[in-house]
Each structure stands twice: as C-alpha cells, then as structure tokens.
Design a protein around this nucleic acid. Structure first.
Lengths: 153, 153
DNA sequence: GCACGGTACGTTATCTTGTCACGTAGGATG
DNA sequence: CATCCTACGTGACAAGATAACGTACCGTGC
C-alpha cells in the first residue's frame, strides 16, 4: 500500500503531474486553461488539503467564490482532484493511481492527507451492498488518526 | 448485513431507542437533559439525515445555532448520533450496533441513509494503515448510489 | 464577413453552515 | 453559603457554497 497523494515534493514531480493533467484533459476533450492550471498547481504544492477560500485568495486579483468552485468541480470531474468531505478541503490526486477506490488517511495533528488504494475492501463493500439491492456509485472513505511522523513526535 | 440506522418506524421502536440512549448517557455519567432528548427524538423520527438548521427550527422557540451544534456534538460523543460529512447532516444510530465500523449507504434519489456494519473491511484497512505507521482513530465510509426502492422505480 | 452557439469566466447577491465569546441559571460540593 | 461546574442562552460573525445573470472569446458554417 503506497501513498498516492499528488503532493509534489520536487519541481520534476510537479512538472510530471502537470503533464499528466494536460494529457487527461486533452483526452477528455476539455481545455486546460490558465485558471485551471493555476488551481491545479496550487493544489500540487499544498502540504495539506487546501480550502476553497484559501485557494481563492491565492489566485490573486479579486476572484469570487464561483470561480474557484467551478474550477474545482471541473478538476474533480476529470479525476484530478478529490474533495475531502470531513475537512471541506481539496487535494490533487495522482491520475490513474486513483480509480474509484480511494481512501484518505488524515492526520489530526499535522493535517496531512495521504491517499491510499482501497484494494479489495471496496470491492467487498460493493458486493455486500448489492446483495441488499443498493447500487453504489461513489464511495468515500476518510480515516482520521495519527500519521507516523506525528506518532513519533 | 442489516440496516442499523436508528430510524424509528414505530412508537415501540422509538421508546426502545430512547431507553437505550438514557442508559448510555447514565453509563457515561452524563445528563440526558430535555433538550438532548428532544434533539435525539427528532433524529429518530427523521426519514432521512437531518440538517442542523432544520433541527434548530423544529426546536421551536428561537434557538440559536450553538444550541443545536453543542447538543449534536454531545450526542456524537456518546455515539448516539453520526454526522454524515458528505451531506452536512446527522442521523441517530442504533447504540451498540455501531461500533467503530460503520458505513453509510446514501441514496442519491430519495435521500435515505442506511447504516451498515462494515465487517472485516475496516479491520483490514486499519491493519494496512498500521503497516504504514498510521494509527486510525475514526473511519468514515459514505457511499452514494441508488437504494433498492429507487432502483425499482 | 458575420450571425450563431458553446465554453469559460466575471460579478452581484444571497443562502447555508458553523464558531467565538461571553453571560447566566441551577445543582452539587465543600 | 461561597464556590465550582455543567448546561444552556445570546449576539455577533466567520466560513462555505450556490443562484442568476452578463460578457468575452473562439470556433463553425453560411
């Protein structure tokens, strides 16, 4: 199990994510506009899930809420960004790595969020729900606790 | 796998839930005040997850936000109520039935939320995270889709 | 060239959700 | 009976999100 969060520690990593994003966007027949690029970049640089209004502030100028929400919605549609419901915050995610099966491990102390592959757990869940007649479209797993670093400290 | 949501269809069921709640409360050395009882009752009667401000309105009088949030926080602390993050809403839950392992199946169409026992899935998740040094304290799984009734219709 | 339609984005206003800080009433305890 | 704690009230406001409408730009086809 490996952390999949698109958290660019290096310039090379960030460049790779951007290229990936461009590719996904083109494949979907959508435009990777400067605004969308900027928001995605801000997210890849964030050390923790970013709030909508914080991103908005970083856009400079005097952007209004719909701007950031529309952009985030777009990026989520393409699977480039995830929303963390329990935090009302957003993270960039590594394309391809995250199918529909993702888990976020959120550290209560440092705020870091790591994305994991849920593996078989979600398959089981889908099957179990199906036996009850429920058809799952989207699953969200958010686990909070202490990350390795914070536990050590 | 059985629905565990504390959604009282009958007066007898509701009375049972209230007694359970009183018991849990007493066991924790806390008071089950009229306000707390009223909020819990409202939740057991709800046909779907209830929003904080809707509950607030139903309290009658002119209750202010902190009143309902404090009360919900208290009930959550005792494990009598769950918050559904993706909806910003709350449900009563069946005490004892819900340990740490709960999943909500939320119907996109009718809004109904059923609580399920996550079974082994969460155990696996906890172990997998632990191998990475992450210590999970609380896990939240919210799956959206179509319930059996809505799929039929 | 220019009307047409679509996508992206700006702008204003408003609504919903949640919290902070402080005050008070009432019971328990010494 | 002074003190403390818990529960709750109150006013103010911060944070999160959306609705409704306008415009600029870019293509396409006549």
């Amino acid at each position: 199990m490996m952390p999949l969060m698109a958290h660019a520690h290096t310039a090379r990593e960030k460049a790779r994510l951007l290229r990936e994003a461009e590719r996904v966007c083109a494949a979907a027949g959508e435009q990777f506009t400067p605004l969308r690029r900027q928001v995605f970049e801000l997210l890849t640089q964030a050390h923790a899930p970013a709030k909508a209004y914080d991103l908005l502030a970083k856009l400079g100028g005097d952007a209004k809420p719909p701007t950031i929400y529309r952009t985030l919605e777009f990026l989520m549609k393409l699977g480039l960004v995830h929303r963390i419901e329990s935090l009302n915050a957003f993270v960039a995610c590594d394309v391809g790595a995250c199918g529909r099966s993702t888990i976020f491990l959120i550290c209560d102390r440092c705020g870091h969020a790591e994305e994991f592959d849920a593996g078989h757990a979600l398959v089981d869940l889908g099957e179990a729900a199906a036996r009850d007649g429920f058809e799952i479209k989207r699953t969200m797993i958010e686990a909070t606790g202490l990350c390795a670093e914070c536990k050590a400290a």
